[in-house]
Structures are given as structure tokens and as C-alpha cells.
Simulated scan of single mutants.
Amino acid sequence: MTTATEFLDAFNNSFVNKDSSYLDAIMAENCTIHFTGLHQTMTRRECLDWSESGFCNGCDNYEIFQDTDDSIAGTHRAWGSSEEDGKWNSNCFFFAKKMGGKIIEWYVHARPIVD
């Protein structure tokens, strides 16, 4: 069974290395990523492209609440930068459905960390 930490590490490695192959290995063909606070959904291809874009530079501080054969849930911190917002830093709640060791749906709700 692929663990929640291994899934999060795949995201982090893709962001840090700007290499979507880490995510490609853990995402089902029909995978979707939902950013609940932004009301935005990405297809698998969009997420793979986004992971190499430099918008997100990494994630850490994982706290896992659930890690079963069919779902994972927890929190993590993520950071990056964009032309619109400049540097950003967020605490995130995530929930994901998985099947056959691959992510089929990923939901994330980010809240900015204000210094």
C-alpha cells in the first residue's frame, strides 16, 4: 500500500525538482485535483504541468489523520510564488481517494499563513 507520506513526498519531489514524473507515478489516468477554496479543479494533465510550473516550491510538515487502502487525509504546509500574489505560504488540509495504489481524487483546502 502506498502511504499518505509517500503520496505527499511525490508532490514535494515534483515541486522541488520541477519534474512531474514523481506525480505521474502515483496518479490514476482519470485523477482530478480539487482546490476547494478556489473552486478550481485540475485534470491529471493540468496537475502534472502545474507541478513543473514553479508556482509551488514545496510542501512539508505532514500530519496524517487517516491512511487506509481507499483514502488518506491530513494537513501539510505548502509554499511558492506567483506573479499575481508574490511569495505565499499556506497551511493545507487534504483528503484523497485512492484505488489500486493510485490517487483518483485529491481535495485540498489552503489557508494562508500570515506573518
Rank of each mutant, 00 (worst) to 15 (best):
A4Q: 08
F7D: 05
F7V: 01
D9I: 00
N13A: 11
S14A: 10
N17E: 09
K18G: 00
S20E: 01
S20I: 01
S21P: 09
I26Q: 03
I26D: 09
C31T: 14
C31H: 14
T32V: 04
T32S: 07
T32C: 02
H34N: 08
F35M: 10
G37F: 11
H39Q: 09
R44N: 11
C47W: 15
C47G: 15
S51M: 09
E52I: 05
S53F: 06
G54K: 01
G54R: 00
F55L: 06
G58I: 05
C59L: 02
C59K: 06
D60S: 08
Y62S: 01
Y62C: 08
F65V: 12
F65S: 12
Q66N: 08
Q66F: 05
D67Q: 06
T68H: 04
I72F: 10
T75W: 06
H76E: 01
R77G: 00
A78F: 09
W79A: 09
S81G: 10
S82G: 07
S82R: 06
S82E: 06
E83W: 09
E84P: 09
G86W: 10
S90M: 13
S90R: 12
N91G: 15
F94P: 06
A96F: 07
K97V: 13
K97D: 14
K98V: 12
K98T: 14
K98W: 13
M99D: 15
G101C: 10
I103L: 03
I104Y: 13
E105L: 06
Y107G: 07
H109G: 11
H109A: 13
R111W: 15
R111L: 15
V114H: 00
D115A: 12
D115M: 09
